[in-house]
Nucleic acid binder design. Sequence first.
DNA 1: CACCGCGAGAATACATTATTCAAATATCAC
DNA 2: GTGATATTTGAATAATGTATTCTCGCGGTG
Lengths: 263, 263
Amino acid sequence: MTCLLKMRAMRDQMSVNERKLADFILDNTKLLRDYSSQQLADVVGVSQSSVVKFSQKLGYKGYPSLKLAVYETYAETSRGQSGQGGGDGHFAQPDNPLSQLGQKKLEVLENTAGINEAESLAAAIAAIRGARCIQVSACPGSVAVAKYLTYQLLELGCWAVFVEGAQVQQRIANSLGEEDLLCIICDFGGEESLVDVANHARELGVKVLSLTRYNYNAASIHSDIRLFVVPADEDEDMQRLLFRSGQLHLVEGLVSGLLTQEA
Amino acid sequence: MTCLLKMRAMRDQMSVNERKLADFILDNTKLLRDYSSQQLADVVGVSQSSVVKFSQKLGYKGYPSLKLAVYETYAETSRGQSGQGGGDGHFAQPDNPLSQLGQKKLEVLENTAGINEAESLAAAIAAIRGARCIQVSACPGSVAVAKYLTYQLLELGCWAVFVEGAQVQQRIANSLGEEDLLCIICDFGGEESLVDVANHARELGVKVLSLTRYNYNAASIHSDIRLFVVPADEDEDMQRLLFRSGQLHLVEGLVSGLLTQEA
DNA sequence: CACCGCGAGAATACATTATTCAAATATCAC
DNA sequence: GTGATATTTGAATAATGTATTCTCGCGGTG
C-alpha cells in the first residue's frame, strides 16, 4: 500500500516529468508489470534515466525495486476488494468457472460428509464386499452415476450389473437371493418403480442399499442401508448437477473403503 | 496458482537440475523475490543458463517472467492459507471417512481449477456444442469417467458414443469428419493406442479434445484442446481414485458450461 | 551579466538475462 | 552390452536492460 500512496502524497512536490510518471503509474498500475524502464520512459515521454532517478527518489534501489513494490501493493489492494463472502477463500481465482463450480461442490461434499454416519458407509462397504451379485438401478436422473458405480465395482472384481427399465429390473430382482445386494440410486422423482423393485427384492431376502436424497424419500424407506445427499440451493439444472456430485462422492467413498479394506 | 502447481506437477518428468530448481523454488518461494538468475543458480548449484532454460521450459519468456509469476501465485495462495500442509478445518469431523476423502478431493479440485485456463474450458464447451458426433474413448483406468461423460452428453442431446477397443476406435474414427469431435480421456499409461486414434482422426480434420494427466502426455500433445488433472501425492489406488475425481470435476465443468450456455 | 541550483537527457558504464555451442550424460533399439 | 540418437549441461558470449556520469539549458539572484 505504501508505495502508491507515497506517490500520490508526493505528487505536489514533484517536478513536471516526475508527476507525469507518477500519474501514469497510478492510472496504469497493472500495465507496469510488463514494462521495462525504457518502455515506460517512451510511453510517458521522458528519458530512461529519468525513470531510474524517479525510482531512486522514491526510496527504491532502482527501477526493478519500484516495479516490484508497485506490483506488490497492487496485488494487495486488488485482493482486498474481491474478498467478499468472508471465510471462503478456497479457490484462488474467482473468475475461473472451474473454481466457481468447485466452491459449490465443496459445500455439497461437506454436507454429504456431515449427513452420513460413518457406520452407514461401513455397513454399505461390508454389504458390497459380502454380496455375490449386485444389481444397480437408478431413477432417470442418476443413470450416469449408476453406470459409474457399476463400472468401478466391476473393476474391483465385484459381480455388478446396471439394470435399466422397470420390467427388466423386476425380473432380475426376482433372480436375486439372500446373498445378493440391490443398490438403488435416486435423486428427484421418478423413483416409484424403484420402490416396487426394492420391496420385491426385500421379500426375497435381498439386502437393499440406497443412495438417495435426504430425508427419507420413498425409496430409502424400504432400504436396509441408507446413504444420503443433501440437495443444494440452486436453480434446477445446477442443483441436479451438484446432486450428482454428492452421489459421486458417496460412490468414491465406497470405492475408497473397498480399496483399503482389501489391503 | 498455476505456476507453482505446474512445477509440482512436472516434478516427476524433470531432469535432475530442473528438479533441484523446482524444489528450491517450492521450498523458498518468497526468497525468490530478491534473487537474480545468477544468485539462484549459485544457491541451487547449477549454471545461470540452466535457470533461464528452466524458466522457458515452464512456458515463460525468461527468468524475470517466471519470477513474477511465482511471486504472483505466492501472493495469491498465501492469502487465506495461514498454515500450510493441508488440513484446515473444512470438513467438520475428521474421523468420518467421507470427510477425509472430501479433504483430499478438495485439494485435487483446487489444483484442477488452477491448472486449466478458463479459455481451454470454454473452447472445449464450444467444440462440444458445435460437434455433430462425439466419439469418447478412454484408457483402461478412465473408462468409468468416459461412460459418465457420454451419458451426460446424451442427456443433453449430444450425439455421443463411448467407443471401446482399439480396432473399433480406429474404425469409428475413420467415419468421422470435420464437424465431429473426438474426446480422449486418459490417466496413467495405456494411452498408446489412443494416440494413434487421435492422430488418425486429426488427419481427417476431426477436432480432438483431451482430458489427461498434466503435463503434456502422449495423448494431449496430439490434441486441439487440452484439459488437465494434476495427480495427487498418494498411494497408487488412492491416486487413481482422486485422479478420477479431478476428471469428473472437468466433466462437470463441461456439463455446467453446456447447461448455462444453453439458457 | 556572471553565477549558481536544478532538472533533464545523451552517452556510457555496469548488471542481468538470453543464446549458442560443444561436451557430457542419459535413452533407446538392436 | 554396444552404438546411434536425443537431452541436458555449463562456458562463453551476445543481447538486453539498468544505473551513473556528464553536459546542457533554463530560471532565479547578486
